[in-house]
């Protein structure tokens, strides 16, 4: 299916104040891929993601989602195709109850009531939060909020799921659960994070961004083995790939 392709060509973004956010980035992500965008704080991950949905427009270069370039005319379709989960769930849950929030997208798509209900129920049960349906968002824990935020996007049945730091603020158990749930999705997934263990578990491909430039793009395992590259970009090997400091202590130089 060619229409779930995400393609950035020589994308450059300069902030209104003159600083460069993204510099000459070219990426092509095909259907069903699970791709991590990694990089230290302030590397430009979020800026890059905001281009996928038409919230930022490239200063030069182009974005293609599916068969069409991203323009003002195609933006509505693109936003339906690309489901975006933002960093802070409080930004995403703005309605009085979780049900209303999850139903927000489908209603905007113009779906009839029964269909909306069906989608709400299926999204909630997929995220395992059916019992929170009638609760207001401010009564939820961070983990519950995160799952609710993902449900609000799932109910729109996007072809491409984009997530910004999905594991921040979660306890180890919540994080483990989230990874389990995300593994079940067969959509194209694009995850921006610096939780490299999550990347090792979920994504077969990783793209490293450093200072707004793409430093590396390849199979996750290869990238994580390149310690010099990781070090240069202010990253560290995921814990799961580091040897245990107790069992086999590294001799101090």
């Amino acid at each position: 299916m060619s229409h779930h392709i995400v393609e950035l060509k020589n994308l450059t973004y300069v902030y209104p104040d003159g600083t460069t956010g993204i510099c000459d980035a070219s990426v092509r992500i095909t259907h069903g891929e699970s791709v991590a965008i990694i990089g230290p704080n302030g590397a430009g991950k979020s800026t890059l993601l905001l281009h996928l949905n038409g919230f930022l427009w490239p200063s030069s270069g182009s974005v293609r989602i599916g068969d069409a370039p991203l323009t003002k005319e195609t933006i509505r379709d693109v936003r339906r195709t690309v489901g975006m989960v933002f960093q802070d769930p409080d930004d995403q849950l703005f309605m009085p109850t979780i049900h209303d929030d999850v139903a927000f997208g489908p209603y905007n798509l113009g779906l009839p009531n029964e269909e909306v209900e069906e989608r709400v129920n299926s999204a909630l049960s997929r995220m395992g939060i059916m019992h929170l349906k009638d609760k207001p968002p401010y009564r939820l824990s961070a983990g519950e909020k995160r799952r609710a935020a993902i449900a609000t996007v799932l109910s729109m049945m996007p072809d491409i799921l984009v997530m910004d730091e999905p594991s921040t603020g979660l306890d180890p158990f919540g994080r483990r659960q989230l990874i389990g749930i995300l593994k079940e999705f067969t959509h194209t997934k694009i995850i921006a994070t610096h939780d490299l263990d999550l990347v090792a578990d979920l994504c077969e491909r990783a793209i490293i961004i450093h200072d707004g430039r793409i430093k590396a793009d390849g199979p996750t395992a290869d990238i994580f083995r390149d310690e010099a590259l990781l070090h240069e970009c202010g990253l560290e090997k995921p814990f799961s790939m580091q040897s245990c400091p107790i069992c086999s202590p590294v001799p101090k130089p």
Binding site: F55, R79, V82, F86, D90, P96, F104, G105, L109, V153
Partner: peptide, 21 residues
């Protein structure tokens, strides 16, 4: 936050109307 909330609304197809059944 207002800007981010608005972004989140737009990304779910908001076009000026709130539906609540």
């Amino acid at each position: 936050r207002a800007r981010r909330v608005h972004t989140a609304m737009l990304s779910r197809g908001f076009h000026g109307k709130f539906y609540m059944r």
